[in-house]
Design a binder for these strands. Structure first.
Length: 558
RNA sequence: GCGCCUGUGGCUCAAUAGGAUAGAGCAACGGACUUCUAAUCCGUAGGUUGGGGGUUCGAUUCCCUCCAGGCGCGCCA
């Protein structure tokens, strides 16, 4: 494996700094992390570092002086670096030998679908748990955002060398499931002209009626007027199954496949609660007060202690979650990421406190909060309460704008900004949609390659093509974009920001469209044509790889 | 009252772990199809980064404070 060019520059910089420290007897604790960045402005070189400014504080000396010292000790013999210059307040800018650009193309061709992968995770096991919506109704638009973010983040972490497991936690027991069953049961009886009172906090959605109708179709009046244990259980189980299979189908059609569907009920069946209570008791983090059992979550920074077992002996929702996270830990993950909606952010502290009370390190569990989606339809906001029954489902959204548009829209901005999703705009502007813009770049490339094939132009993998012919400004620009994929993957895996990749996609597509407008790929010049075909094929590959990480499809024609 | 998130051109958002002249798209205006897909490209205009302080070589980014919006503060889930 070749040395990364950033690594190479890091190395010679480090050598130089070490030399200075020795020569001039500087005292220094640690050398700050070297940050090499690609300057926005071309006149600042191909790569740049601010290390001199970073060191200035520690060395108590002017950034410019340090920069000069570093540069004069820099050994650029036999490296990719052509020229070094100091600029501004103390930036050290590097100009690279142009060969490096063409080496990028070789690398892409060599690695194919693997280009863009980095080994940040080194095989560490990460669990990403997301969506995990109570199975009391269909998924709505807000859940779609969580699904898109969770799935994309998982893809990013995989590309960054982590071993990722995606999980959906099903709250398939408890009070809300009882109410759900009752809601359907009442509707069922009402359809059969049996008077029943609808539960005060019952689920009012249209889908409840549909399920009731379905039960009539299948079982006629078998359960009419009955209210024994068996009947209640029947409505609960039937409804739960129905809704859950709907959720699974929605997610699958949205392109999200989970590795594990984890049932809350199964934890109780295995009597895991008792185990966890005993463990917490042993560790001294439980106490009784007012007939209830409390967790001392304040010890770990929670605002107040929390009830685990109620006065009436029924465990709280929180208790289940503690048991569930205990289970996650026992499955041996190095890291657990929970993705929650913004309405649950007040829950983070107690959950992290619980994890620590169980004895896990503070950074074992991290919770990522996805801010709400405000959906605009016909110019006004649409409410999204499951219980109230008024919402736009993820299914509706997919029907209206398609899977790719929906996913991209959720991912194109940072998940922690509350985004407005104007349905009318997403539909009516679909021709100017960023998704189409990007996919169009891909389709264009495919179409050129197809045409070249028809004209009998073939790229022989073994035959040398003179890539130095790719010397136009737009070509250099495009290759540089291609080269930065790995950096983007690394960064987004480190910061858990999928939108860095959507931004990158747009950027890359833009570079390609510009190139396309100015230069023709297929020309009379055979050698040039071949070189350009390689360039666009590499672009195609990079687009493809990024699409794959984000779960967006790559159409060969549009 | 306390906590979390947000505030950037008219609108929707970026800004790479604090970096160089704050960038895109939409909307506006003016251009480019005899071409491998015009679902594209080029140009013009548009900014006191909510206000005020601070930290330093440098702040959209970090700290304090105020203002505005969203969301939470249960022996609900």
């Amino acid at each position: 494996m070749k040395i990364d060019l950033a690594d190479q520059i890091n190395e010679i910089l480090l050598d130089s700094i070490k030399k200075i420290i020795r020569q001039d007897n500087f005292q220094i604790k640690d050398i700050p992390k070297m940050i090499l960045l690609i300057p926005k402005n071309k006149s600042h070189g191909d790569l740049s570092t601010n290390i001199a400014m970073q060191l200035s504080r520690e060395l108590k000396s002017k950034p410019l002086d340090i920069a000069h010292l570093i540069v004069s000790n820099l050994d650029i013999q036999d490296t990719i670096v052509d020229k070094v210059k100091i600029a501004g307040p103390g930036f050290i800018n590097f100009w690279l030998n142009e060969n490096w650009l063409y080496k990028i193309l070789d690398e892409i061709r060599e690695q194919g679908e693997n280009y863009g992968k980095v080994n940040l995770g080194k095989g560490k096991r990460v669990q990403v748990e997301f969506v995990s919506v109570n199975p009391t109704g269909p998924l709505h638009v807000g859940h779609g955002k969580c699904a898109a973010v969770g799935d994309a983040l998982s893809g990013i972490l995989k590309a960054a060398g982590y071993e990722v497991e995606k999980e959906y936690y099903i709250n398939d027991q408890g009070k809300q499931i009882d109410i759900l069953g009752q809601s359907v049961q009442v509707r069922y009886n009402n359809f059969l002209e049996e008077k029943r009172e609808f539960p005060a906090d019952g689920y009012k959605g249209e889908y409840i009626f549909d399920i009731a109708k379905e039960i009539i179709d299948k079982f006629q009046d078998k359960y009419k007027g009955r209210d024994d244990k068996e009947t209640q259980e029947f409505f609960k189980v039937f409804t739960l199954k129905k809704i859950l299979s709907g959720i699974k189908k929605d997610l699958k059609d949205f392109g999200v496949e989970f590795d594990v569907w984890f049932s809350e009920k199964s934890l109780y069946e295995q009597n895991k609660l008792q185990e966890v209570i005993e463990l917490l008791q042993q560790r001294g983090f439980l106490y009784e007060e007012k007939g209830a059992l409390w967790l001392k979550s304040t010890v770990f920074g929670d605002e107040k202690d929390r009830v685990v077992i109620r006065e009436n002996n029924i465990p709280t929702y929180f208790a289940s979650d503690i048991v569930y996270h205990q289970n996650k830990y026992q499955r041996g993950f190095d890291k657990v990421i929970d993705i929650w909606g913004a309405d649950h952010h007040g829950y983070i502290n107690r959950m992290k406190a619980a994890a620590q009370a169980l004895g896990y390190s503070e950074d074992f569990l991290d919770v990522l909060i996805v801010q709400f989606v405000t959906l605009i339809k016909d110019g006004k906001e649409v409410g999204m309460s499951t219980r109230g029954g008024e919402f736009i489902t993820l299914r509706d959204l997919m029907r209206e704008v398609g899977k790719d548009v929906a996913r991209y829209f959720f991912l194109m901005r940072s998940y922690d900004s509350h985004t407005e999703f104007d349905l009318d705009v997403a539909k009516s502007q679909s021709m100017e949609n960023p998704v189409y813009y990007i996919q169009y770049a891909y389709a264009r490339i495919c179409s050129i390659i197809k045409k070249a094939e028809q004209e009998g132009i073939k790229i022989d993998k073994n035959k040398k093509v003179n890539l130095h012919l790719l010397d136009k400004e737009e070509e250099i620009e495009l290759i540089k974009k291609l080269s930065s994929l790995k950096e983007v993957v690394r960064k987004s895996a480190l910061t858990w920001k999928p939108h860095l990749l959507t931004t990158y996609l747009y950027d890359l597509a833009s570079s390609f469209h510009k190139y396309y407008t100015v230069h023709r790929v297929i020309t009379e010049d055979k050698e040039l044509t071949k070189a350009r075909l390689i360039l666009i094929d590499c672009t195609r590959m990079v687009l493809f790889n990024t699409f794959k990480i984000l779960g967006i499809s790559a159409p060969e024609s549009m």
